[in-house]
Design a protein around this nucleic acid. Structure first.
Lengths: 350, 350
DNA sequence: CTGAAAGCGCTTACAG
DNA sequence: CTGAAAGCGCTTACAG
């Protein structure tokens, strides 16, 4: 017993009108007379009809969906961004398609099975890329500017690919973080870095160094701790800090997650924060203010980043392909804010 | 200058074959002779052709996508589940469509603009619902069992809707948590609840009470703190704890997030954990072990929950509608694990 | 192994 | 205001 979902033809038959009329009643009700419209809606009710999106999309040459390429879905930072995107996009009537790009084009290269989902991106009305490491070729393989879906970067970006984007000023934010440390009297300041290939890592480090240089200070090589935005890399940095003879009295961490891993491991070894080391994070995760000690950090406006990226994409989608190809599109820079809490203090005396 | 993406006809023309052959070369290469196949692939390369998914879907009466309905995308608990789902689903060649249901059918009722995206769920090959509060009518409005997309619940579920699901045993887990507290010698044990309408809340509380009853204990009304899985509700519970004359010496929190909010606010007021109060959480978030003191909690196998839910959905999708309608499908229960760390200890003496 | 043809469920000029 | 007809880009029996 093959059961088929009712189609527009069933509705038309039930209402005694043509399929064209049903379609119009649905998409432009004002082009249909009131009695006809009522009949159509009754028929829809009665048949249990639902519009088939795939058919509409095929016909209108649209997909009604945008894709979001996320480096790591399990990271709370990204889920907040995604949430802002989803809110604006579904308000605008679009579905949001999510792909986790972690295994894709990072480190060990493209893994086959992630590719199909991404290839579909060609058949999506737009693309928001949160992963600056996505290979440029992957994005270019979407076709020439007139054909490929409008794309915007958010948070991260690639210097090899020219697309509109919404980000924060990572250099300035990193600089501000270190200026705060300098103002507290620190002169031995270290940095716990993000993953080396990441743009954000370079920019935040650059900002830190600029602030140091402005104060006539510099970072000893041993004070630059490698990291990868994970809790564990924060904990490893604590090992390094403890092991070294010449230690920084303050460490600027490129993410809250790492700062939490760092502080946790430090405290567990009996090191006092901020009495012995000041620590400043980056992001201002929801939890940052609930820690003890509460984390001093740089706040990123996460919901706004997601929302702006979505709105920017919507704008780009409204442009004709030619106009779009002709203009690189804006680069929005959202403000950050230094949030001073309990993990930073003047350096220990002596 | 209207630029159109190349279609299968362009490829056929370039290769000097029919569209049927191109289609076959793509979907069942072994049904096409090697030379023809090569010619087709060359033509694909040369024209820059990409399969139009919407067209295939329309023709095959599939959509190639599954939808995931998430109560709150910004919550790190759910993003880990989502990540597990996305991994399995894209491996299987499906796109994952995400909808945040927060404003939808919770509290203030259905907000119009979230509905369209959800209505589309009818045109999705399957559905994973992480939101037990989604109104039963919403799910039923997807049509009779033969027509609506196969659906599975994960984590949460609704008692009004009979669908396969993958969950943990929340009663047993809650019971285990409180047994641990009892074993430590606590007799005044409180509970920080999840949102009142949520199934998880009821089950975890029930488990807690069962453990208490088994030990000949009971919870004073004042020891049951209202909560909603947020950090803030954890902090409010700390206020309540401090304000009351007769306090529990141990509190079982229905989520790690609340436990963190609770402990943070407690410590900030100078209350020692676990010396003055023991606290146990639920979930085992990545951060739980990095806190100081490290959080004792009940681990949920989050990646496995997501993966199992995805695999279960895939199985259901393979069934014929009739078979599916005839069988309610399994209820998988995944194991949890009590992780004892530093926030629980024997009650203070005196 | 390959092609001609029908059809998936819509939308939209074009007539009337 | 309404309908007949074409077509969006594929896939798949059905012949050959």
């Amino acid at each position: 017993m093959k059961t088929k979902a009712p189609s527009i033809r069933d509705v038309a038959a039930a209402a005694g009108v043509s399929t064209a009329t049903v379609s119009r009643a649905l998409s432009s009700p004002d082009k249909v007379s009131a009695p006809t419209r009522d009949a159509v809606f009754r028929a829809i009710e009665q048949t249990g009809y639902r519009l088939n999106i795939a058919a509409r999309n095929l016909r209108k040459r649209e997909t009604g969906a945008v894709a979001v390429l996320v480096p790591n879905l399990a990271n709370p930072f990204f889920s907040a961004i995604l949430s802002g995107i989803a809110a604006v996009m579904s308000e605008a009537g679009y579905n949001v398609l999510v792909t986790d790009t972690t295994p894709f084009g990072r480190g060990d290269g493209v893994t086959g099975h992630q590719f199909p989902a991404f290839a579909n991106a060609r058949h999506v009305d737009g693309l928001i890329v949160l992963d600056g490491l996505l290979p440029a070729e992957a994005l270019d393989s979407l076709g020439p500017p007139q054909i490929r879906p409008p794309t915007v970067y958010a948070c991260e970006w690639s210097e090899l690919v020219d697309r509109p984007r919404v980000t924060i000023d990572n250099v300035a934010a990193g600089q501000g973080a270190v200026e705060h440390l300098v103002a507290l009297g620190h002169s031995k300041i270290g940095h716990l870095c993000g993953p080396p290939e990441n743009v954000l890592t370079r920019e935040r480090l650059k900002g830190a160094q600029a602030a140091l240089a402005a104060a006539g200070l510099a970072m000893a090589p041993g004070w630059v701790y490698p990291g990868d935005f994970s809790l564990e890399s924060g904990a490893r940095a604590a090992d390094a800090w403890c092991a070294a003879p010449d230690r920084p009295t303050a460490v600027f961490c490129a993410s809250d997650v790492m700062a939490i891993g760092f502080i946790g491991a430090l405290m567990r070894r009996g090191v006092k924060v901020p009495a012995e080391v000041s620590v400043i994070g980056f992001d201002d995760l929801d939890m940052a203010s609930h820690f003890v000690p509460a984390l001093t950090t740089v706040r990123q406006p996460r919901p706004e980043i997601g929302q702006s990226a979505a709105r920017l994409l919507l704008e780009r989608m409204d442009l004709s392909p030619a106009t779009r190809a002709a203009s690189p599109g804006p680069r929005l820079v959202l403000p950050t804010e230094l949030v001073v809490r309990e993990t930073t203090a003047p350096p220990p005396v002596g």
